[in-house]
């Protein structure tokens, strides 16, 4: 599915969409950026509650298709500025990680 379709299914709030037609081919859930860096698959949707500017760097490095902030976490200003600058797709949902993944896992 595309990032755009993911946004629709999750009913997510969009903070930055640079490439909404990007294909999401897998997923990853986790908050330890050191783990995400090495393990999140390329073109995955990354579900996290981590709100820190380094989320953007890790998303770029791991080449994830979209960052999904869960549990109503809103990106702080440095993170929001950085994803806009770096062209990283960032969306947010109210559900916790389990709930969000449940909504989309059969589609990815």
């Amino acid at each position: 599915m595309t990032v755009k379709e993911l946004v629709q299914v999750l009913d997510a709030k969009v903070y930055n969409l640079d490439d909404e037609m990007r294909e999401v081919t897998s997923g990853y859930a986790g908050d330890f950026l050191s783990a995400v860096m090495g393990k999140a698959p390329t073109d995955s949707a990354w579900f996290t509650i981590m709100n820190n500017v380094n989320v953007c760097a890790v998303a770029t490095l791991a080449e994830v298709a979209v960052v999904v902030l869960c549990e109503g976490v809103e990106p702080d200003e440095p993170l929001l500025n950085k994803v806009k600058m770096q062209g990283v797709n960032l969306i947010a949902v109210k559900e916790d990680i389990f709930g969000a993944v449940k909504k989309v896992c059969h589609l990815i």
Partner: peptide, 9 residues
């Protein structure tokens, strides 16, 4: 910090 952020900021 190194585990959680992957770096020292």
């Amino acid at each position: 910090m190194l585990s959680i952020l992957g770096t020292i900021t």
